[in-house]
Amino acid sequence: MAETCRQVFNVIGLNANRMALEWASAAEGPRFVELITKYVARIRELGPLGSLEGEAPKEVLERRLEAALKAAETPKVRTAYGNVAKKLHETRDFAVYTPERISQEVADRILPTFRQELLSHDVLLCLAEAKDQGKKTCSSGELMDLTGASSEELDKLLSALAKKGVIEGEAAGWSLKEPACAGHADRKGE
């Protein structure tokens, strides 16, 4: 769980040190105090969200987190996550639960799926944002700057989304297709 988070944070440009997973038993009050004090000092050092070198600005982070959240809920990502857990469990060997192995499995089996879903939601959010600002279309170049994706990746994704009928347009300008939401289309059919 923590490893997935860390790797996703690297993708969206959030410093993974902002997240901590620590253990303190019920009897370890003093240890807890020490952990919390150290952690708060660390966050103070890092500064507010999005202010750090190598971190994306706050608005971008917020949009990407929103996309990540949507991506995390997709069946594809959930399945990938479950499959890794199952695979490790089926070895019946506790020795496989090493940080290196888990990190490897997450990078190989969860992250590619997650990244793709994240990107697709990010593109949709970008287009929705552009629309709210009164901009009719977004070119592939603009989307590339906004999402930080490579051009091949983005081209593939855009054509897939266009095929699904969620967006329309071509390389020069993409926009959300009207009616944008599925609920809208359903109502039409009634």
């Binding site: 923590a2 901590a20 966050i43 890092l46 500064g47 929103e66």
Partner: peptide, 12 residues
């Protein structure tokens, strides 16, 4: 994080 936290601490 999306709700604006600067850090998330998980304690077990």
């Amino acid at each position: 994080f999306r709700c604006g936290a600067d850090g998330v601490f998980t304690g077990g």
